[in-house]
Design a binder for these strands. Structure first.
Length: 495
RNA sequence: GGCGCUAUGGUGCAACGGUUAGCACGUAGCCCUUUCAAGGCUAAAAUACGGGUUCGAUUCCCGUUAGCGCUACCA
């Protein structure tokens, strides 16, 4: 075991391109990555595409995109198992040669059907010891069917136990009687001698070849592990350390699936979550730093990540908590980390103006080079998802914005409003300077002169200048928009 | 069915033999307030059940129950 880490910590994430990058897979990838970073190790990406039937090569791009968005960067690969067939065949032949595997001529659908009971066994095997009498004895099938191509099966010991140490679950032991003679290599098609590798062989051969020190993967692989440990031994290698991760469940505690909502990480990107918030949330699903801290930026996660902190209980994917994390990041992130995300969002929605880039020309208020960052800061406490910058905050970035009918209904009810806004427009237009306090005083003066409460004017004005009942504090909003726009929007309101 | 794993509020985690069982999300209420958020305060809410071990169990052991996983020439 110890010699496994001689050439350093080496981990891998090994998705199969039979679908998109699932949040469960994303969490596995994240844990591998955090562990590798924390231990100054190496992370390898390996595509497990040995099943030509199910595998869809075009899905690899989506998985890679998902990982990149997540910020999980691998150091080696991606390696494709479909291109390493010869390696697996050699390993299978080695097992054949040293007696740890055998050729099986059974038709695939017959093997488990009880065709292989030894003579004299008429009872259907019912688990327990009876099961092992199912050792394949299909030499007869070969004799009566000379053309049949065999698969290679591993010869699991008839007795004894196989144990391994799981860093998360502890010492784990399986009775060999429970393990069937699993297939290593599919039978050959056409004129091939053998077909593609099966999962168990591929993982083990690659994990040996890639000198993997820690196998960090979902707990759904616990039952596979003894098979793999047996294979390591048959191939003359020492098994790595295993760390199985509890599964992620949906709100009903069933395995997370599409009907629970989005399970494709790329959908969280398009929904507008910040990758760092998503990482923070995911890291805390099945792992804890050992105390109550929750807001952990990526550098903190790396610093704190220990396999010992991984939980053994399956966890529910709680989207409301993810949303909370996102708002936390939207509010707390240093502005320079947030700006690029907002810029990208505004570009997506075609609202972006190059003059807003840092250090460029003044913003719409014609005053300050950092208009964009000031405006984002003003907006961020109320934003939940990145696209809100384009929709909810549209009036800050474009003159073409809708007026919400419900907002009108609520704040323009009073018949005095049109005249009030006209007076306010005149008052504001006459202002020699433009800042929060000046706007504040001018507005309140107009309200007072008209004999109405300031609130009435303020609320009505908000609707006129941003089209919504909800926005940042009014006078800050006025400053962000600039004098010209505020005046013209007020004048246009009832025209 | 067999085998394996797991079991703290609705949810995610903490307490690794001794705490009034802690934090966060969510929920309810209050405060703040020009809207809405944010923020602050408060409240309701948990050790699945039954046996042991121990001076003492959330914590260790056994059983029950429940959930999940595996049980493919899928990964």
């Amino acid at each position: 075991m110890t010699d496994k880490t001689q050439d350093g910590i080496r981990v891998r994430f090994a998705p199969s391109p039979t679908g998109y990058l699932h949040v469960g897979g994303a969490r596995t990838a994240l844990f591998n990555w955090l562990f590798a970073r924390r231990q100054h190790g190496t992370m390898i990406l390996r595509i497990e595409d040995t099943d030509a039937e199910r595998n869809k090569p075009e899905l690899v791009t989506g998985i890679l995109d998902g990982l990149k968005w997540l910020g999980v960067a691998w150091d080696e690969g991606p390696f494709y198992q479909s291109q390493r067939t010869e390696l697996y065949r050699q390993a299978a032949k080695k097992c054949l040669a040293n007696g740890s595997a055998f050729l099986c001529y059974c038709p695939p659908e017959k093997y488990a059907g009880g065709d292989h009971r030894e003579p004299g066994q008429d009872e259907e095997p019912k688990g327990g010891g009876a099961r092992r009498v199912m050792r394949c004895s299909c030499r007869d099938a070969q004799a009566s069917n000379p053309g049949v191509k065999p698969a290679v099966r591993f010869k699991v010991p008839l007795g004894g136990t196989t144990r391994f140490t799981d860093v998360v679950f502890g010492e784990t032991e399986f009775s060999n009687e429970e393990i069937e003679d699993f297939v290593l290599l599919r039978s050959g098609k056409g004129d091939e001698e053998f077909g593609q590798s099966m999962y168990q062989l591929g993982v083990v051969v690659d994990d040996i070849d890639m000198r993997i020190s820690h196998v960090i993967r979902g707990a759904d692989h616990i039952s596979n592990t003894p098979k793999q440990v047996l294979l390591y031994r048959a191939l003359g290698a020492e098994p790595p350390l295993f760390a199985h991760l509890p599964l992620i469940l949906g709100a009903d505690k069933k395995r997370l699936s599409k009907r629970h909502g989005a399970t494709d990480v790329n959908m969280y990107r398009t929904e507008g979550f910040l990758p760092e918030a998503f990482r923070n949330f995911l890291a805390l699903l099945g792992w804890s730093p050992g105390n109550d801290e929750e807001y952990l930026r990526t550098k903190d996660l790396i610093e704190r990540f220990l396999l010992e902190g991984v939980s053994r209980t399956n966890g529910v994917f709680d989207k409301p908590k993810l949303e909370w994390f996102n708002t936390q990041y939207l509010q707390k992130l240093p502005i320079e980390d947030l700006l690029p995300e907002v810029e990208e969002e505004l570009k997506r929605s075609k609202l972006w103006k190059e003059e807003w880039a840092a250090g460029a020309a003044p913003g719409p208020d014609g005053r300050d080079q950092t208009w964009f960052s000031r405006t984002v800061n003003l907006l961020r406490p109320r934003i939940r998802l990145l696209p809100d910058f384009s929709s909810w905050s549209r009036a800050f970035f474009s003159d073409d914005f809708p007026i919400d009918p419900a907002a009108k209904e609520k704040f323009w009810k009073d018949p005095k409003v049109p005249e009030l806004l006209a007076k306010l427009a005149d008052a504001l237009a006459a202002l020699p300077e433009w800042n929060h306090d000046v706007c504040d005083h001018a507005s309140r003066a107009v309200a007072e002169a008209a004999g109405v409460k300031a609130g009435l004017l303020i609320n009505a004005t908000r609707v006129a200048i941003v089209g919504q009942a909800v926005a940042p504090p009014l006078f800050d909003t006025m400053v962000a928009l600039g004098q010209e726009r505020v005046v013209s929007r007020l004048r246009k309101a009832f025209r």
